[in-house]
Write a protein that binds this DNA or RNA. Structure first.
Lengths: 232, 232
DNA sequence: TCGGGCTAAATCGTATACAATTTGATCAGA
DNA sequence: TCTGATCAAATTGTATACGATTTAGCCCGA
């Protein structure tokens, strides 16, 4: 029998990927027994993995009711994106004008991977695009920022899958290139502006659309009843 | 037998308090059995509590070696304080000029509790002072910011206990008052300045002193050997 | 037909048993 | 005396058993 938390990590990683790739959709129940059987592990181990995921709010655990894939509300989504805006600003402020050639190369490679996947129609381009922001955080050398960014990026992906439209991410390759250029020549004001609008385009517009759709949806749903009340 | 995670929460809260009040000092081993016996719970429950504490980095869990009270390095301390500076700036930027009278009153009450405890020499004044920053975060209405601030404040307390000198916190009452005043009249530039220097005084100077002490300590430790090398 | 209570199935929360690992002490040999 | 191997004690990692809780289906009486 293997020891250590290797198995916990494996299950954690597996579930996390499945959630972020939308194989497990928000709201899906995650019973400990079923998952344990799948992975060939006991509930003890599965539970620990689920608790880790709950720690980054990718799954919801409600006492005595089990775990489900998290289904953030629009309010939670707005809160998340708003905080992410600020944290990304923290990151670029720390990096602006301080990028080494090696780091610039690393970023360019990341963008190229994203571009290639996007051109070839592979869905990993989403993961690569998200990783770009994580790599930026890593370059600050601040473990805490990395930790936060990892959570923020993961949860953002979940939310985009829930509310977003894929087309919003199309422009991100060029925007990522512009960000790197700006980081290199140290134009902080322009950099902040670019990052803000980049995130606005990718994140906020998606959920704003969702919010409008939802409002309209409620109106439509209620319309027949209003009609009935008027005539009845 | 009670159900739910109530018992986990109780143990979590108990351990957390003990750590933050420095009853359990950094490095102290936290064996699951011993704690379980103390609280009258099984290892299962204790383990969960320890994992929660590890989640906010108040305890260290190393595979097969058990949990100890976290003992952050000076580098980790610097990283934490640096990020905390930025997050606190996020908070005041969101609150500046937007404080309701009720909120101002709440803050004043918090400061008074701190002042009273300080005047009477009760050690809770430290907890009250830390809570002030948490209350500010709560007033932003952003659950995420509250979450982050809670972690940051908790870990800051741990670090101050490890490296800090108590006298640095003396001036915080007046500084907290100034912050509230500034939040009310909406002078953002001055507010940012105040908060920066407030945190600098409370946090950074403490560990800078510790760093100098440590450096000097190494010099002292090495001195005899240098002497020996010179004569040998 | 419909709502309220009852029961059974599913699933979680906790305790406990046992295996695996670490750690420190002991002891033999150089 | 010192070094390294070996073994026992302490402690963690995982599996599993069992009680507790939720949930949903079912039946029955109105």
């Amino acid at each position: 029998m293997k020891q250590r938390g290797e198995r916990v990590d494996a299950i954690y990683a597996g579930l996390r990927l499945a959630i972020l790739e939308q194989v497990l959709q928000p709201g899906t129940k995650l019973p400990e027994d079923a998952i344990g059987e799948q992975f060939g592990a006991s509930r003890t181990v599965v539970r620990r993995a689920l608790e880790l995921l709950a720690g980054e709010e990718l799954v919801d655990i409600r006492p005595n009711r089990g775990a489900t894939v998290a289904k953030p509300s629009l309010d939670e989504a707005r809160d998340l994106f708003s905080v992410r805006q600020d944290v990304e600003q923290m990151v670029i402020r720390r990096l602006c004008g301080r990028l080494t050639p090696a780091q610039a190369k690393r970023l360019e490679a990341q963008i190229e991977a994203e571009e290639r996947a996007h051109r070839e129609g592979r869905p990993e381009y989403i993961r690569h695009a998200a990783e770009f922001h994580l790599v930026l955080a890593e370059m600050t050398g601040s473990p805490l920022l990395v930790r936060y960014m990892r959570q923020l990026v993961g949860r953002s992906a979940l939310i985009l899958g829930l509310y977003g439209r894929p087309r919003w991410t199309d422009c991100s390759v060029q925007e990522h290139r512009d960000l790197v250029t700006c980081l290199l020549n140290g134009d902080l004001a322009r950099l902040e502006h670019l990052m803000h609008h980049h995130l606005e385009a990718v994140l906020s517009r998606a959920i704003d659309t969702a919010a409008r759709d939802k409002e309209r949806g409620i109106r439509d749903l209620l319309a027949p009843y209003v009609e009935a009340a008027r005539s009845g």
